[in-house]
Amino acid sequence: MVVALALVVIVVGSILFHMLSPWWWTPIASNWGYIDTTLVITFWITGIVFAAVILFMAYCVWRFRHQPGRKAEFDPENRRLEIWLSVVTGLGVAAMLAPGLIVWKQFVTVPDDATEVEVFAQQWNWSFRLPGEDGRLGTSDARLISGENPLGVNPHDSFGQDDVIVELSDLYLPVDRPVKMMLRSIDVLHNFYVPEFRAKMDMVPGMVTFFWFTPTRTGEFEVLCAELCGVGHAFMRGYVQVVEEEDYQVWLQEQKTFADLSTDRRIRTAKSDQ
C-alpha cells in the first residue's frame, strides 16, 4: 500500500515539479529555437513513458501484493506482447530521433553568408579576431605567439594584416546576421558556451572548431567556459554584446587592426630604445 502510494507520489511529484518549478532554460537569443522544440518533444515522450511505466508498476505492487493464499501465475513468456512493445518503443525513439537529426543537419551546414569570427581561448580568458575589409581571417599559429603577437597571427599573411583584434574584452555582434564562430585554443580544451544561444563547441589546441548561429535579439550575454580547463575554469567568463547594425559599425571603427597594433608596438619599442 505505502509502497504503491510512494511510487505514485514520485510520478506526480516529478511532473508537478517539472510544470510548477521556476527553473527552466533562459529565454533564447538565437535561431536555434528548433533545438528547444526537439527538447520539448523529448520531454513529452519520455515524460509519458516514465509516468506509464512507474504507474503500471505501482498498480502491480498494490494489486498483486502478497496476501495469505495468493499464488503467482506461471507464464514464462509472451512473444507477441514483447514484439509489440519493442515496436512501440522503436516508434517512440524514432519520433525523437527524426526531428533531432533534421535539426542537426541544419546545425552542421553553415550558410554561405555567415561572417567568420574567431574566438581565441587561453587559460583563463577570451579574445576575439574579426576579418577586416577583405572579409578573410589571416592564418595563425600557436608557435608565433609572443608578447608582440598575443594571438599568434601570421605577420607574413596579407589577409591577416587588416584583421581586427579584440583582446580580453567584449565581442560585439550585429543582430540578425549569421556568424560562424571559428574556435581556437592555444593551451588546453575550452568550450565557448553562451546559454542564450543554445549552441556550444569545444575548443581544441592544434585545430579550429566551429559552429554557427544567428543572434536574434540585442543585449548583453555572458560567455561561459564549458570544458574543464584547470583551476580557472569556473571563472573564465566573457561577454558578447549583440547590437543593432549601426552601433556595431561604430564599435568596429574603434577597434585596432593587427597592422595598427604591430606598428604602435614597433614605435613603442623604438622609443624605449632611445
Partner: peptide
Amino acid sequence: IVTFVNGGLTGLFLGNVVVDVPLSD
C-alpha cells in the same frame, strides 16, 4: 526501476545529438 528508467530516459535527451548541444557539460 524507478531511478533507472528516469536516468535512462534523460539519457535519450543527451543521445539525441542536437538536444545534447545545449545540455552537454
